[in-house]
């Protein structure tokens, strides 16, 4: 019975679309080409120039790229971004998965499951600035609640200036938002669980599998699609977002929390080096494109 879930949906995909169907794509394509691709292509072009936003553009050939590849700061920012990507993805996925599974487990108790579902979705409304401000306070080296807590439980020697110490700054930035139950990720997982056939659950309980085993071997496979989806969505969001870091540490101390997005922003608007900033963007794009192509190749192989 499980084999039906593993087989890729190969039937029905290979169909030639009618003109009418293709025309459904047109508005999307048009908008994307105009408002996304056109500006990005221009940006790519300008990455070969010295440009500060106005009319004057000086052709530099590959100079921006050479400067970029010889700048250690860029590699540091890439490394930081990688660490953030790996760790924070785990943080934003696993608790959401756990909570979704628990809420799903409550499906016989409708009131509770509705209640908890709301509890975890509503905080999505909280504006990011509020969360940042609060966490900045929590992490404060002097009067932050985290340090106070550590002292209260006699772990006073563990207190740090969390955001001000280059050794802990990156980790602190990653840890923000505890317990990291991402509302929309949770909803997607929940949808996955709820969509699974009832009969599957019953047959599994009959066969005498323990809860933990069931979770790892079966639950996760059943929502593998949603898992992959959430991982990609989370990664996309993480790559884009540097405003939080900008507010908390501005990439510091030193370069401890510098990420490519922030580097790009500063170069474009603080140093008026827009051509160089565009080069950063292009390199990022190429890196990510290659990674996603690589990822899908590996995905295809492991699927069978």
């Amino acid at each position: 019975m499980f084999s039906t879930f593993y087989k890729k949906r190969s039937i029905g995909i290979v169909r030639r679309p009618s003109i009418f169907v293709l025309s459904m794509l047109v508005p999307s394509l048009f908008l994307v080409l105009l408002f996304n691709y056109y500006p990005i292509l221009q940006s790519i072009t300008y990455s070969f120039f010295k440009w500060s936003g106005g009319h004057k553009k000086t052709f530099l050939g590959l100079k921006n790229y050479i400067d970029l590849f010889t700048s250690s700061v860029f590699y540091i920012s890439l490394y930081n971004q990688l660490v953030i990507l790996v760790l924070r993805t785990i943080f934003l996925i696993v608790p959401a998965l756990l909570v979704a599974r628990l809420i799903f487990g409550l499906k016989t108790w409708a009131k509770a499951s509705n209640f908890f579902r709301l509890i975890f979705v509503v905080p999505v409304v909280i504006p990011p600035i509020v969360v940042l401000l609060i966490w900045q306070f929590l992490l404060d080296g002097e009067i932050g609640l985290i340090n106070s807590f550590l002292q209260a439980v006699s772990l006073g020697n563990l207190t740090r200036a969390w955001l001000g110490d280059p050794k802990t700054a990156l980790g602190s930035v990653i840890a923000i938002g505890f317990p990291w139950v991402q509302g929309t990720n949770m909803l997607i997982f929940l949808a996955g669980f709820l969509a699974v056939d009832e009969s599957i659950w019953d047959s599994v309980t009959l066969e005498g599998v323990s809860s933990l085993q069931r979770f790892f071997y079966i639950d996760i496979h059943l929502i593998l699609g949603q898992l992959k989806l959430n991982i990609i969505l989370t990664i996309i969001q993480l790559m884009q977002d540097f405003v939080g870091i900008m507010v908390l540490t501005d990439g510091g101390p030193g370069t401890a929390t510098l990420v490519p997005g922030l580097l790009l922003y500063k170069n474009a608007f603080q140093y008026a080096k827009m051509g160089y900033a565009n080069a950063i963007g292009v390199v990022l794009f190429v890196v990510i494109l290659s990674l996603s192509i690589l990822n899908s190749r590996i995905g295809k192989e492991s699927n069978q």
């Binding site: 990005i40 996309i236 790559m239 884009q240 922003y265 990022l284």
Partner: peptide
């Protein structure tokens, strides 16, 4: 891949 680029890249363009 487009989605993963910080949108500030093409802000000015």
């Amino acid at each position: 891949a487009l989605m993963m680029i910080p949108t500030v890249l093409s802000l000015v363009t």
